[in-house]
Write a protein that binds this DNA or RNA. Structure first.
Length: 595
RNA sequence: GGGGCCGUAGCUCAAUUGGAUAGAGCAUCGGACUGUCGAUCCGAAGGUUGAGGGUUCGAUCCCCUUCGGCCUCGCCA
């Protein structure tokens, strides 16, 4: 076999005259009867091979058999292309290789789709023939970026004294959180392992074990419905540190983020990354992961709308709700009535709002400013003026409002803000706006179950000043949790953990986890806390979402080599599939058919 | 569990109000061609319209069931 001496992306004009051997896949062929051109592709690039019957008659004849995706090796001489023949689309476009020997290593059936046009091909087909799809330069770039991110992370953590330690995949099922993937045990008939939703407790135990600084690039499993940015199995960069406070964790990891941005994108992230409280984020943007590439803050006009004649507004506020909205600069002329009453209204109703109220800002009398809409009659001139002032609105702006309980209003307005921002062209695709969201509430009230739920997870520590409120005012305890957000998407989050058994017990109490339940589920961990647990905390980054950002895709399946469909199936291997009765017998399982 | 979009040749799409032998580009196969680079030119072949059922003289089109893909609400401590 001809052994390659260089790859398909490296030859340049300075290599002219060299004897080289290349191998790869036939990307395309152009057969002129006499001259034959082959674009040879490997993961590094494309190089043009030339077969000339005058210099090598036999090889030229052989080359005419070549078809797309055949695998070949060829030796020849690098030479300049002639005047006017360079191909600026290729990095190697100044040269070509005149071939004197061709070895066909393997033929290939005609691909199910043309690799060049695969962006237009149904994803179903791409996933079924994933090995073809992954051959495309675009997909290989993503694989390369993913590799580089993990390499940067490993080097970074190593340099800071972190150890990479593996934790079990076969673990214990706990009913909280996401649905578990279960694995039946053969040796313990009738018992099940659960695949980890995250290595949370193991990494905390490692801190009790004196490991001090741990990280792991680890697969996690959650049996919930997938989304465009969510897969049932996904990868976390998981970290835990001892003897730290929030600030220490944050400072280390913004260095990591800066390093990744620099190495992958060549972008300098200015440190420190800005911080915002959870409350500020909810007030101004309606969610805990604001997209700061554009401003457009939400404003609460309840103080003004309380006394207006518009019943929907007044009644909502009367019942303890709010009227909140945003100002779309220039939206009064940019958007049609159908944009507002159909498109925008659909956005908010899809997220549970009852409706959307709107006003156009117009020039008023005597050079003033006023509002115009079918609701204007319900507002006094003073109220209209106050609303305009609240937003510093100008003529041609559009004001959009939702009236609801504050949670509901935020839930509807946050996506509306994004939609309006996009439609107004306010979002710079090349910008990266990073921020830390801080001071999350420790608990949120669960109406259905009549108890508190952890916002983050039950091992998150309260901020020290708020510990007293565990007994008096649990709903207003802030936690030492932090999320890192980029362009409106959470890429990581973590917290300082509880390391005192008494506080952990109180938290379980508020979550209505009984002593017995806590013992059954986390007994080993509570025990560990009693044996000298150091103060500790950590963070986890979603590697898949990180790579999505770095490669500019909005589809998580693009950044996973072998992803699953929305039904959790692998179209390449056809998993999941039924198994032999003998396998079931061995596991003491019986399959029950539905209905 | 709910809502929405989609499924026609290997791929991407078309097909009038329900009407004749379901078309086109690319790919494939054959032929021509010495500088192409998404080569070009000539020709050929290629169909269970996702599957099953129904309505109809007649169904890609209408109805029902079902399978699959994507987006989304719920869900995701």
């Amino acid at each position: 076999m001809l052994k390659r001496t260089c790859n398909c992306g490296q030859l340049r004009i300075g290599d002219a005259g060299k004897k080289v051997i290349l191998s790869g896949w036939v990307d395309s062929y152009r057969d002129h009867g006499n001259l034959v051109f082959i674009d040879l592709r490997d993961r590094e690039g494309i190089t043009q091979l030339v077969f000339n019957p005058e210099t090598q008659q036999e090889m030229h004849k052989l080359s005419r058999q070549l078809r797309c995706e055949w695998v070949i090796a060829a030796s020849g001489t690098v030479r300049h292309r002639g005047e006017g023949l360079v191909n600026p689309k290729l990095a190697t476009g100044d040269i070509e290789v005149l071939i004197d020997e061709l070895e066909i290593l393997n033929s290939a059936e005609t691909p199910m789709f043309e690799l060049q046009n695969a962006d237009a091909v149904a994803e179903e087909t791409r996933l079924k023939y994933r090995y073809l799809d992954l051959r495309r330069p675009k997909m290989q770039d993503i694989l390369r970026v993913r590799h580089k991110v993990t390499k940067v992370a490993r080097d970074f953590f190593d340099s800071k004294g972190f150890w990479e330690i593996e934790t079990p995949f076969l673990g214990k099922s706990t009913p909280e959180g996401a649905r578990d993937f279960l694995v039946p045990s053969r040796l313990c008939a009738g018992s099940f392992y659960a695949l980890p939703q995250s290595p949370q407790l193991f990494k905390q135990v490692l801190m009790v074990s004196g490991v001090d600084k741990y990280f792991q690039i680890v697969r996690c499993f959650r049996d919930e419905d997938p989304r465009a940015d969510r897969q049932a199995e996904f990868t976390q960069i998981d970290v835990e540190m001892s003897f730290v406070e929030s600030d220490d964790v944050i400072k280390v990891h913004e260095q990591l983020v800066a390093k990744i941005w620099k190495e992958i994108l060549g972008v300098d992230v200015k440190l420190p990354i800005r911080r915002m409280t959870y409350q500020q984020a909810m007030d101004d943007y309606g969610n805990d992961k604001p997209d700061l590439r554009f401003d457009m803050k939400l404003k609460d006009i309840s103080d003004i709308a309380r006394d207006c004649q518009f019943k929907v507004f007044a009644d909502t506020i009367q019942k303890g709700g709010v009227v909140k909205g945003l100002c779309a600069t220039g939206g009064g002329v940019k958007f049609s009535r159908s944009d507002i009453e159909k498109t925008f209204t659909n956005v908010v109703t899809a997220f549970g709002a009852k409706g959307l109220a709107w006003f156009k800002v117009i020039k008023g009398e005597q050079g003033g400013v006023d509002l115009s809409s079918n609701l204007v009659k319900f507002f006094t001139p003073e109220q209209r003026k106050a609303i305009i002032e609240k937003f510093q609105a100008k003529p041609d702006d559009l004001l959009l409002f939702v009236a609801d309980k504050v949670v509901g209003a935020n839930k509807a307005l946050a996506p509306l803000r994004l939609k309006v921002g996009r439609d107004l062209g306010l979002i710079d695709d090349k910008a990266y706006e990073l921020l830390w969201v801080m001071d999350f509430p420790l608990f949120e009230w669960n109406d259905k179950e009549n108890r508190y739920d952890s916002l983050h997870h039950p091992f998150t520590a309260p901020v020290p000043e708020d510990i007293g409120k565990l007994d008096t005012d649990p709903g207003n305890i802030r936690s030492q949790a932090y999320d890192i957000v980029v362009n409106g998407s959470e890429i990581g989050g973590g917290s300082i953990r509880i390391h005192q058994p008494q506080i952990q017990a109180k938290v379980f109490d508020l979550l209505k986890i009984t002593k017995q339940q806590a013992e059954d589920r986390f007994g080993f961990f509570l025990q560990a806390l009693k044996f000298g647990a150091p103060p500790h905390g950590g963070i986890a980054f979603g590697l898949d979402r990180l790579v999505m950002f770095l490669t500019g895709t909005d589809n998580i399946r693009d950044v996973i080599a072998f992803p699953k469909t929305q039904k959790g199936q692998c179209l390449l291997t056809d998993a999941p599939s039924s198994v032999d009765q003998a396998q079931l017998d061995e596991l003491n399982l019986r399959v029950q058919s539905h209905h």
